[in-house]
Design a protein around this nucleic acid. Structure first.
Length: 154
DNA sequence: GCCAACGTTGGC
DNA sequence: GCCAACGTTGGC
C-alpha cells in the first residue's frame, strides 16, 4: 500500500463533487512528474485530497485509487481543452487513474498547520508546492489523519 | 489579483 | 545543450 496526495482547486473539482460523483477520472494532468506518480499508483492506494487556492488551502478528505493508470482520453480530443497534438493513441503522452470518494474530514488540515508541524517538514507539499500529484510517506499520512481527528483506517 | 517559483519550449 | 521567454500554479 502506498499513499499519495492529489490537489484540486475547490472551485474546479471539490471533494463535495467527488462525493456526489462517487468516482472520477483524474484527467488533465499535464506535468511529467505528476504523471509518473499516477503511473506508480496501485489499486487500493489511499490519497489525501487537497484543496488548493482556497482560504485556507487544506487536506479536506480521503480518496482511493480504483483503476490504475491508463491513457487520458482528453489528450486525443481535438475539441477538448486538454488536447495534446503531440500525443497519439499509438503513443500516448498522458495517463490518469480513477479515484473514488472515501471520506470528508470534519476538520480539514490546513497548509498552515502542516507547515507548523515538525513531523511533516519533509512532505512534498511543503517542499515542492507546485506538484499536483505527489507521494506521501505512511508516517505522514497517519499524522495528517491524527491532526484531522480522524479515526485510523482499518 | 499579484507575483514568485517552477516547468516547458524553442532559437541559437 | 544552453538559456531566455513564456505559461502555469498556487500561496498570500
Amino acid at each position: 500500500m502506498q499513499y499519495w496526495l492529489m490537489k484540486s482547486e475547490a472551485d474546479v473539482y471539490s471533494i463535495e463533487q467527488l462525493q456526489a460523483d462517487r468516482r472520477t477520472m483524474w484527467d488533465g494532468v499535464r506535468n511529467y512528474q505528476a504523471r509518473n506518480n499516477m503511473q506508480a499508483m496501485k489499486k487500493g492506494d489511499l490519497v489525501l485530497y487537497y484543496h488548493s487556492r482556497q482560504d485556507p488551502s487544506a487536506v479536506v478528505g480521503l480518496a482511493r485509487v480504483v483503476n490504475e493508470a491508463y491513457p487520458d482520453p482528453t489528450q486525443f480530443d481535438r475539441d477538448h481543452k486538454y488536447f495534446d497534438e503531440k500525443a497519439s493513441v499509438e503513443s500516448p503522452r498522458w495517463y490518469l487513474v480513477d479515484i473514488e470518494f472515501v471520506r470528508q474530514f470534519q476538520h480539514p488540515v490546513s497548509l498552515h498547520d502542516i507547515k507548523a508541524d515538525a513531523a511533516l517538514s519533509e512532505m512534498v507539499l511543503v517542499n515542492n508546492s507546485r506538484l499536483s500529484v505527489q507521494p506521501v510517506r505512511e508516517s505522514e499520512f497517519m499524522h495528517v489523519l491524527r491532526l484531522a481527528g480522524e479515526p485510523a483506517l482499518k
